[in-house]
Design a protein around this nucleic acid. Structure first.
Ligand SMILES: [Mn+2]
Ligand SMILES: [Mn+2]
Ligand SMILES: [Zn+2]
Ligand SMILES: [Zn+2]
Lengths: 140, 140
DNA sequence: CCCTATATTAGATATAATCTAAATCATTCA
DNA sequence: TGAATGATTTAGATTATATCTAATATAGGG
């Protein structure tokens, strides 16, 4: 019963379990492909066509702030989202913009003097280049 | 004579040394604060008010492709740019969006089997949280 | 079952980036 | 030096992405 898990994870973050929020979390649980906000919006509305773009963005913001969801910013394109489940890194394709998971491995922290008074919330390791599919196609 | 350095670095990348390109590189050399495309556009036009937004974006794209400039994507905000000079990592402030440099240290590569047929061009380590200034201000 | 802080909604607005096709320019080579 | 030419630039329109607004609805505690 995944439903209970989602409900509890929302509530334990101080977020009400609303229909749009639940639908977004359920969608992200089932679709590991790093969807954009627009894709999440469309998917949620296919089920129950009443949600608003504003709600999608508001909720993504809140879910990221609560640590349930992670955003991967992609230059010149819409940001991509995924569940903060098992730790992993990311690979972003220069050509097609796809975001793919890379197995987790530990990354050393910076020397504390080089962070100064900054407060670190998270640390993302992002690889860029050509995904397997794009690497095979002709260059340029 | 910085001018010659810029000119040569452009040409050795197969890029003509044009006025807008030169001005952009000079501006990035002098301003280490990770400006946005809009800021670069404005700065270049203050000197010689003839450049176009399209040229700014085109050139940033080409300079990144040539490896002379790096882009840091920031969720929900304009991307930030800096020169690929001394290697370093980045810190992005959740609240004010500022991008700051973090001293370089070596990051281990992923196991090659976990990259598969992907071709890695670069690897970015990005920290997120509150910058020193924002960390001091009241929370929320 | 009520109450109310929290959340949602439609649509307008703001911001960021790309596209177009005509004009210009940097570089090469005779 | 003086074409020739492919790369580059340009203004402005267009698209893509994200946020704002203020009226309405609802989750969840009491
Ligand atoms: Mn992921
Ligand atoms: Mn930097
Ligand atoms: Zn690809
Ligand atoms: Zn800050």
């Amino acid at each position: 019963m995944d439903a209970e898990v989602i409900k509890r994870s929302l509530q334990s973050s101080g977020l009400r379990c609303t229909a749009p929020r639940y639908a977004m979390m359920a969608f992200l649980t089932d679709h590991k492909g790093h969807p954009t906000a627009a894709e999440i919006f469309k998917a949620v509305n296919r089920v129950d066509p009443r949600s608003s773009r504003a709600t999608t963005y508001n909720n993504l913001r809140d879910l990221v702030k609560a640590g349930l969801v992670r955003e991967v910013a992609v230059e010149g394109r819409a940001g991509r989202f995924d569940l903060e489940g098992m730790r992993h890194h990311h690979f972003v394709c220069d050509r097609c913009g796809n975001v793919e998971d890379v197995d987790w491995y530990d990354v050393p922290q910076p020397a504390s003097h080089s962070l100064g008074k900054r407060v670190v919330r998270e640390c993302q390791l992002i690889f860029r280049g050509l995904c397997a599919k794009c690497a095979q196609r002709a260059p340029r």
